[in-house]
Amino acid sequence: MTTTTIDGRTVHTNDEGFLTDPTEWDEQVAETLAARIGLELTAEHWRAIRFLRTDYAAQGETATLRRISTVGGFPVKTLFQLFPQKPAKKLAYVAGLPKPQGCV
């Protein structure tokens, strides 16, 4: 197990840096994580983050890009604009969740 310090708080992560305990996350943590990967969070980012957190709480696993798009109603194109290059993983990282496991 690895710990790292975010905003003076100790949080648990996996060896890649994804938070492993969703309860250690809050909105301030999200802002800091986003800044680390060069993102400034807008209202649009927040809508996606909140969907992912809510869906994770209900499903017990992180939604894939497909699920974020079909269930959450976020167009795939928009997700690529908000979280460029690797939208599903970046979104999971900022939302303090494990990276998605599903193939599609």
Partner: peptide
């Protein structure tokens, strides 16, 4: 065992100029 990272641990998301 717990490893404490002093430097921020950030996943490798690649860069925009990935070839």
């Amino acid at each position: 065992m717990t490893i404490t990272e002093n430097a921020p641990l950030v996943p490798d998301f690649g860069t925009t100029d990935t070839p």
